[in-house]
């Protein structure tokens, strides 16, 4: 049985169809990259997998560990091990980063019949990973994402991923708005988590991130479906030649 498989998916918002007969299979331990021109549905794909109520699925299914996740609410999909790193993480005033982390971690533990993590263990876990990501202590006390720069927000997303230990991490344009140093830190954060049981779906415009995080598969998405799949060389040729040949296909 495939570990993660999207089959014949048609989905969109109330005004238009975005994903059109979309198919994709991911096995444990793989790094997939999805690239494509703006407006082609890459972010929508990420959001549909995560269960964003803004999108509705008209047909098709998504199987994860033998379960069709489409009927499941977002928090259940998350607790099963799906993580979405947002392109534009929203802010939540009055809720500190630390408090938010505690809630998320314990909610997922509860779903999986685990006891909540005690405060000292939690603190320790958070601090170690925050340090590795160059996130200062005082940022953990600030309200989540309020007034954070693009780079800071992406680091916080990476911190959350490191703490929640997902099985399938979908990262939506993690590299946008980052300078070289920030990019290296985020890439490192991803690489450190790579293992045989964990998969990544990297959504990206440029192949910058891909030079630091090597993909096993690169897919090109146009008009809501995958039109070409290959390996990392496909990404390199895109960089050279652009998307034109795929747009006319």
């Amino acid at each position: 049985m495939p570990w993660f498989k999207i089959s014949n998916l048609f989905a969109g918002t109330e005004n238009k169809l975005i994903l059109s007969d979309f198919n994709l299979q991911i096995n444990p331990g793989e790094v997939h990259a999805i690239m494509g021109p703006n407006g082609t549905g890459k972010s929508s794909l990420a959001n549909v997998i995560a269960g964003n109520p803004k999108y509705s699925v008209s047909s098709g299914n998504i199987l994860f560990k033998n379960i069709d996740i489409l009927p499941l609410p977002p928090e259940q999909r998350a607790s099963m091990g799906i993580f979405l790193g947002f392109q534009n993480p929203i802010d939540i005033p009055g809720v500190s980063v630390m408090t938010f982390l505690k809630y998320a971690i314990n909610a997922q533990r509860a779903f999986n019949s685990l006891e909540p993590l005690d405060a000292p263990s939690l603190l320790k876990k958070v601090k170690i990973r925050a340090e590795a990501l160059g996130i200062p202590n005082e940022m953990l006390k600030r309200p989540l994402n309020v007034g954070f720069s693009g780079g800071e927000k992406k680091r916080i997303e990476t911190l959350q991923m490191a703490l929640l230990e997902p099985e399938l991490a979908i990262l939506d344009e993690m590299d946008s708005g980052l300078d070289i140093d920030a990019l290296k830190i985020v890439a490192n954060g991803i690489n450190v988590l790579k293992n045989n049981n964990r998969s990544f779906l990297l959504i990206t415009h440029y192949d910058r991130l891909l030079s630091y995080v090597k993909p096993n598969f690169v897919h090109i998405m146009v008009n809501g479906k995958i039109v070409r799949s290959g390996d990392e060389n496909l990404a390199k040729s895109l960089e050279k030649n652009g998307y034109t040949e795929f747009l006319n296909a």
């Binding site: 995560a50 269960g51 964003n52 109520p53 803004k54 609410p73 977002p74 928090e75 999909r77 998350a78 607790s79 993580f83 979405l84 947002f86 993480p89 929203i90 939540i92 938010f100 809630y103 998320a104 909610a107 997922q108 779903f111 959350q160 929640l164």
Partner: peptide, 13 residues
């Protein structure tokens, strides 16, 4: 809705 979905994606009901 964005705030709600963000929390839900992190496992919070």
């Amino acid at each position: 809705e964005e705030q709600l979905f963000y929390c839900q994606q992190r496992g919070i009901s």
